[in-house]
Design a binder for these strands. Structure first.
Length: 670
DNA sequence: TGGGGTGATATTTTT
DNA sequence: TATCACCCCA
């Protein structure tokens, strides 16, 4: 097999199979390429079967890209059964195949974090813990327990303070409710398989026999539970390659344990480490800046990026009067640069720390009629209309899904009010059954008047009919007729601010349905409604439909969401103390993660990088004096070109301006 | 049932 | 200050 278009280090990483391997892949060093080539190599040159290889990523986007790249390089026949998925999808597949051992019934639901929050709210209503803040804390606590493989009993025995006891008991009730609803949460998708593997060695061996080689991407983002899952599946064999970059760990705040990278050394004593330091993305100046910046962080593994793409232009630093001025200047900079260099809008990206920062930029872009693409925002599956239809599907697949039941029982209106639901809930809770089942019980007559009962039963009967009508053959047809029967469109029109909005929302509903149709055609894996619904619960954006026009637009993104992307010309705005690094991180002493965030931003740029900061920024409606970010000071000053700003207020800034002037001259000379 | 007034809130977000 | 969710009243 031909590995000649890889560099020596990449080739080593592909060919090394003698022991577990950690590939430390710097930004833009071609890590996805290494993983995909290695999979091809394992199949073509090592004689492994595709269905015995599992490649794991964190996002659907990454796994989709990986699949696309592999299928471009290898015959489709040889790829049958190759497992490329997210951690959560892998977990879901394990649960599905070992359903009996997990105590779940077919058709189980997956609760998203909103479902979880409202369930927790209901559970803790007796326990003096009702405000949203505390609910969030409990949710976080339960999630971290699961990520550390602690079950309710252990949480209870470990509890020392009163608050821990309360949390542990809520945790226990929460698990019981999930069980009653035949539901699991996102954390369970990893927790349940790991728990099962630990309890039942036969099942573990069965899965070890299925997976002869495992590859994990973005390893610095794994949490404790995911680490354990990999460890169990590998089970002392030499069949593991993980790829990661501790300098790009920016998700510690949501449970990622970047120390898992270092932990590998201890758990796999024959671990091999290969570093990928050649960067294929950026010019030398940008890498020099990135290296210098990240040098301020402590490192377990030293790493220095380099490239042969030439040195490039100085990094511009724009000092602006205020935040509006900043937006104006960034936009006019893009416009004039585009005009001079005849570039596309899509060559530019504007990156920022917080979502709110996009507002002024958006306004400036609109004023200049510049098309832009905002990455992030409310994702498709978060939209109310999509959640509504999804809830219908969930209830049809799993009557016991109370979260979904509550969402749609009176949407569109069926004259089932909160009073009725409260009594129904009480009744169901007393008997430990779901709301749906409770509707059918005779005992209900004593609690509710016949009108309410009729409404409820009308609804459940309608669902039962749908369930019976739907079979996998006519799934889409039945779903479309369901939406018609609901008269959902009328409801949308009545409940939207304008006809245009209503139309857009109905379009989303139709997109959802055609997406289901499409996905069903594409694979036979997710053919039943229940499987389809599970699969969709793990999605957050609608995959782009074929032929959808990719318009030429400026990219706006948070620094977090920009990881993995690259652009010729990058602007990072708001390079100020208290913003980047963020105030909260300064207070918590989390400067290192903020620095990595800045590092991620800097390394997105291929050609040019422009940083901007303002002297005055409106925060919470108040004008606040701002200071330039310490990260600007940490960059190699000779490579910076300061622009704008005439009046220096303090001597330090005077100095800086002197330096900038010098750099300016150098920049002009080079 | 919906519109308007009120009050809380403002870091990052995938599955 | 700007937004948004929520609640109350007509």
């Amino acid at each position: 097999m031909n590995l000649s278009d890889l560099n020596p280090r990449q080739r080593d990483a592909v060919k090394y199979i003698d022991s577990p391997l950690l590939v430390l892949a710097g930004a833009g060093s071609g890590k996805t390429r290494v993983i995909t080539t290695k999979i091809t190599y394992l199949i073509e040159s090592c004689g492994l079967k595709a269905h015995n290889i599992a490649a794991v990523t964190f996002t659907n986007k990454a796994s989709k890209e990986m699949k696309a790249r592999i299928s471009g390089s290898l015959d489709k026949k040889l790829l049958r059964g190759l497992k490329v998925s997210t951690f959560h999808t892998l977990g879901l597949n394990i649960i599905r195949q070992e359903l009996k051992q997990t105590g779940l019934r077919p058709g189980f639901s997956i609760f998203d974090s909103q479902d979880v929050a409202s369930l927790l709210k209901e559970i803790s209503s007796g326990n003096l813990t009702e405000d949203d803040d505390q609910i969030k804390q409990i949710q976080w606590k339960i999630s971290s327990w699961k990520n550390s493989l602690i079950d309710p009993a252990r949480a209870m025995s470990m509890a020392e303070e009163k608050i821990d006891v309360v949390c542990a008991s809520i945790y226990e009730k929460y698990q019981m409710s999930l069980r009653a609803y035949n539901a699991i949460d996102f954390d369970d998708l990893i927790f349940l398989p790991v728990d099962l593997f630990q309890r039942d060695k036969d099942v573990l061996h069965k899965w070890q026999n299925k997976i002869h080689y495992m590859l994990v991407d973005e390893y610095q983002d794994t949490n404790g539970c995911q680490y354990e899952m990999v460890k169990l599946l590998v089970g002392g064999r030499n069949c593991l390659t993980v790829v990661g970059d501790d300098d790009q760990s920016i998700y510690a705040w949501r449970g990622a344990q970047p120390e898992n990278l270092a932990q590998l050394k201890q758990d796999y004593n024959n671990l091999e480490v290969i570093k990928l330091e050649q960067n294929y993305r950026s010019v030398g100046r940008i890498l020099k800046a990135a290296n210098t910046l990240i040098d301020n962080n402590p490192h377990v593994f030293e790493k220095k990026l380099w490239s042969d793409k030439g040195f490039g232009d100085p990094i511009k630093v724009m000092r602006c009067k205020n935040d509006e001025h900043e937006a104006q200047r960034v936009v006019s900079e893009i416009l004039s640069h585009r005009f001079q260099k005849r570039t596309k809008y899509s060559d530019y990206a504007i990156l920022y720390r917080g979502n709110h920062q996009s507002r002024l930029i958006e306004k400036a872009l609109r004023d200049h009629r510049v098309p832009y693409f905002l990455s992030g925002g409310t994702s498709f599956f978060e939209k109310t209309e999509v959640k509504d239809i999804m809830a219908y599907l969930r209830v049809i697949a799993n009557y016991d899904d109370d979260a979904a039941f509550l969402r749609i029982v009176n949407t569109p209106r069926r004259e089932i009010g909160s009073g009725t639901l409260a009594k129904l809930g009480e009744y169901a809770q007393d008997r430990g059954i779901s709301l749906f089942r409770a509707c059918d019980e005779m005992g209900l007559e004593q609690y509710l008047n016949s009108r309410a009962i009729n409404n409820l039963r009308g609804f459940t009967q309608w669902i039962v009919n749908l369930n019976e009508k739907i079979d996998d053959e006519n799934l889409i047809k039945s779903l479309r007729s369901m939406v018609l029967e609901l008269d959902y469109e009328t409801w949308l029109i009545d409940n939207s601010k304008s006809p245009a909005v209503a139309e857009k929302r109905m379009e989303n509903v139709n997109d959802l349905l055609s997406w289901i149709e499409n996905a069903k055609d594409k694979s036979d894996e997710h053919s039943s409604l229940a499987e389809m619904v599970n699969y969709m619960s793990l999605m957050n954006i609608l995959e782009r439909q074929e032929g959808e026009n990719e318009s030429d637009s400026v990219n706006l993104s948070t620094l977090h969401a920009s990881k993995g992307l690259e652009f010729p010309y990058v602007f990072i705005i708001g390079m100020e103390e208290e913003l980047l690094p963020h105030r909260v991180s300064i207070d918590e002493g989390n400067i290192e993660e903020e620095r990595r965030l800045a590092y991620v931003g800097v390394t997105r740029a291929q050609q040019n990088l422009t940083l901007s900061y303002t002297r005055i920024r409106k925060k919470y409606g108040e004008k606040v004096q701002c200071e330039v970010s310490r990260f600007v000071d940490e960059l190699p000053q000779d490579d910076l070109l300061f622009e704008g700003g005439k009046v220096e207020t303090n001597p330090e800034e005077q100095m800086q301006r002197g330096k900038a002037h010098l750099a300016n001259l150098k920049g002009l000379l080079s």
